[in-house]
Design a protein around this nucleic acid. Structure first.
Length: 117
DNA sequence: CAGGTGACCTTAA
DNA sequence: GTTAAGGCCACCT
């Protein structure tokens, strides 16, 4: 999906989230950074809520900077996110994920080629 | 316009 | 390992 430099902030966020590989996770803040929106992590959560279901965006791979699922524990969304991550091979304990094991390490070259110039 | 609220982040203790 | 404060920004009362 190639985009021009006029793509909306939300579209750029979706684009980055779609690049997170199965079995990996990435934080709201870092997604915002790669989308060219430093300091706007909250916009990422908004974008995930607003994403059309048909996009099949891997929203579950986005967690907070402390390596935890951001939904409140024991809530339905929390449980759902944890279950999906586990089916992808991610170990989750009490909503915590070890970033040293599962954080996405984006490839700069690939990234540059897929972003607007 | 003035708060309050979030699927947030960094820093400092 | 925590938590608290301050910052942040889009939205809603």
């Amino acid at each position: 999906m190639q985009m021009n430099s006029e793509s909306s902030p939300m579209a750029r966020i979706w684009h980055i989230v779609a690049m997170i590989p199965k079995g990996k996770v990435y934080s709201y803040g870092k997604v915002a950074d790669l989308a060219g929106l430093p300091g706007r992590a909250r916009l990422v959560s908004k974008a995930l809520r607003a994403a059309p279901a048909e996009m099949d965006l891997p929203w579950h791979r986005v967690i907070n900077s402390q390596g935890k699922i951001s939904f409140a524990e024991h809530t339905q969304p929390f449980i759902e996110q944890m279950q999906i991550l586990r089916t992808e091979g991610v170990t989750v304990n009490r909503g915590r994920i070890k970033l040293s094991d599962y954080e996405w390490q984006p490839d700069i070259a690939t990234l540059v080629l897929s972003l607007p110039y």
